[in-house]
Design a protein around this nucleic acid. Structure first.
Lengths: 183, 183
DNA sequence: CGATCTGTTCATTTTTTTCTGGACAGAATG
DNA sequence: CATTCTGTCCAGAAAAAAATGAACAGATCG
């Protein structure tokens, strides 16, 4: 599952590692960076976001310095479009932010270390709407159900009730989850 | 996002609804069924499973009678392959089970109404492995980190520690989540 | 201003995921 | 047994998701 990145060298963070003095074009990512990226790719995928987003966040997470978009594109060998969109998404979740760097008009990105914003925004933006939608659907189903007086109605009503119960459970869980994550 | 199913008639459940006496080939799914299917599709997608799985479970959920695979294929207009694989997956999570029907050698499926098995199996099978994997990666990263004595090491160590903290949080949350769901 | 530099958007291409339908294996039937 | 019936598996087709790169819009600079 995890993409295999070229294990390589010459980062800000690990310029002290053995320099491979490669004859080829310089390799791109240190082992540490590869591990971090892989970690975040799988995390991000679990949340249903594209892997490029995980790459971006992973690299920023271990980078001790702020990086402009171009640097991310170069190091990750990622297109401008993906980088731009991925960073936009990460910003929108508060997982990443830009910092001012004197004498450079590009935006420089750093990873937000406190992921609780991310978690909060993710839940509010991605999970809650699903639940709301589910509730609307449940109501519609109940309405439909009231129209047929068959003997099966009771069965169906029972099942709807169960479903509603699960919905409530989910609904009740989110606030708790948030509290837990922010703790 | 939700697929739009032909709103239609003549199910077991809703044979009492107005019969549209369609001139065409008989329509397939009642409104209620469509709602249920849509609901489960979006739930299932949220968990990263293919939509056909949601269709199967959704239809079984509202069906008052056990259905053989063939019936599911027919009603959902789904191929044998998808049906077979989807049901296999649902069985493996304990979301669905087969019941005996006298004089019919086909397996007849019913939806397991208590979704706590499903939730439990899902967490144990899909989430926990990710966490375990993450832990292994964290350890590897720590080992890598110990190799470079740069001034940046402290920064990196701090970040790893944060990551580990999140990992622990996730780890701690699962048992609680399970308890909550099974309640 | 005109030139350059940054970053966004979006039509197209590429990759990944999902679905399909037929070959197949095993079980029940007669 | 040979035949039919059920369901699984898997190679190829189709659909969906993600990545690319070029056109573009808005700064900023000289």
């Amino acid at each position: 599952m995890p993409a295999d990145y070229a294990p390589a060298a010459h980062t800000d963070l690990d310029s002290l590692e053995q320099a491979p003095a490669s004859t080829e074009a310089a390799p791109l990512l240190s082992e540490l960076e590869v591990e971090a990226i892989d970690l975040f790719i799988s995390l991000i995928r679990l949340l249903g976001m594209p892997k490029s987003v995980g790459e971006l966040y992973g690299l920023l997470f271990v980078s001790p310095v702020a990086m402009p978009m171009e640097a991310l594109m170069d190091r990750l060998k990622m297109s401008k479009g993906s980088a731009s969109q991925g960073l936009k998404l990460l910003r929108s979740f508060g997982a990443v932010k830009t910092v001012y760097v004197a004498g450079d008009r590009r935006d420089h990105y750093i990873a937000e270390m406190d992921l609780s914003h991310f978690a909060t925004n993710f839940i509010k933006g991605e999970v809650q709407p699903h639940l709301d939608n589910g509730l609307r659907r449940l109501d519609r189903m109940e309405k439909l159900l009231s129209k047929f007086p068959s003997e099966n109605r009771e069965i169906a009503e029972n099942r709807l009730a169960r479903l509603r119960h699960w919905h409530e459970k989910g609904q009740a869980m989110l606030p708790w989850l948030l509290k837990f994550l922010v703790s």
